[in-house]
Design a binder for these strands. Structure first.
Lengths: 203, 203
DNA sequence: GTCTTACAGTTTACGCTGTCAACCTGGAAT
DNA sequence: ATTCCAGGTTGACAGCGTAAACTGTAAGAC
């Protein structure tokens, strides 16, 4: 009970406090509100102190991105272990992906919707590992590797298009949202299993 | 041949010169490089002069967005007037959409990939008009309005997912790009015409 | 018990951003 | 000749990420 240390809780080390505040700010006000100075003032330190614990602002964001991927992976892997045929499993996994995006739009935004040049510095291996849940799409097609990879990418990009446009509020609000989502997921699953031009001659 | 006016060509009025420089900068270095001061110095005026011709930096961007939509609309409408059944027309229109995105990625980025809060101020009616080409997807399904709108949205979001991930370089480069594109387009067309869950009971 | 070293902060500063308020200036209208 | 105004400039403000230099404090070595 020493009386020193005025503003910040000394129990949580600064790094964790910064991360916590970044999370709060991201979820509460979105990526655009994340500035080093805002985080610092909310946490009770100076902006430059952040650089004692993170190489750059980007690497702080990457920590949040990692957390996002962890949750997405957890959700997807859990659903993928359910029972049912490949098609219904794929449907459920796709649903889990979409639900994640719509329930945690701020995380989805920094994970998948940030500008490429900003993302470039994200370590490649970390990205591979992080995207692990996307491979589930490919695996569920039970096709030869190359073909599966393409089908997985098709499913992913279809779902990503839906989620990103919904998050950005670019889809006409007069549309029945739930019907659109369910139909899109079905369409994505079709894209995974239906006959497609490259299917015959790409193995 | 009056000897005054050192830097800027007096023939082109400033507004057009600003737009031209913004175009050049966007295409050459991308959206992130677009700053009022850079535009101004390249054009030979001060940054604040831009505000004599545009309400804000955003409204300057909107002018570029409008140009992008104009080109996209032109491409899509032209292709949609070709002959062939609805399916092959839809395929060609989808291809035109994807080609536009991949050939003019910087324009696609400001048109479809900018953050929502930034886009909010874009006038609603302008957006409706601008998105005209997206309605072509819906019209080609030849379905009742509501159902067509949903199918059109599915096609659009599928293509948008593909284009945006390709632009952001998030698709595994080991994939055969052309095969992925062609398969995605086919999958999108499937989504427009195949039986989907909401199809039966939504009219 | 003093000296050293290292860590964990702060202060200050630089160059960049969009934008506003005030000022200036040349030419047309009265 | 005077006034007005469109179209520019200058200067400033608040905010951004971040680098460099400085400070206080705690632990270890002698």
């Amino acid at each position: 009970m020493c009386p020193s240390r005025p503003t910040r809780d000394p129990a949580t080390p600064l790094r964790e406090a910064i991360l916590q505040e970044a999370r709060t700010l991201l979820e509460g006000e979105g990526y655009a509100a994340l500035s080093t100075r805002r985080i610092a003032s909310a946490v009770g330190c100076t902006a430059t102190s952040i650089y004692l614990h993170f190489k750059s602002k980007d690497s702080l964001i990457y920590a949040l991105i990692d957390e996002g991927f962890e949750e997405l992976n957890r959700r997807v892997v859990e659903v993928s272990k359910g029972d049912g045929n490949a098609l219904s499993l794929l449907h459920d996994v796709a649903r889990a992906y979409v639900d994640f995006g719509l329930e945690r739009p701020e995380y989805y935004e920094i994970m998948f919707m940030l500008r490429a040049e900003q993302m470039e510095r994200y370590p490649v291996d970390a990205y591979r590992r992080a995207r692990r849940s996307l491979d589930v799409f490919a695996e569920l097609t039970a096709l030869p590797a190359q073909e599966a990879a393409r089908r997985g990418a098709i499913v992913w990009s279809t779902l990503h298009g839906l989620v990103s446009l919904l998050i950005a509020q670019r889809i006409d609000i007069s549309l029945d949202r739930e019907a659109l989502i369910e139909d899109s997921i079905h369409s994505a699953c079709l894209g995974a299993f239906a006959a497609l031009p490259s299917g015959a001659n790409s193995a």
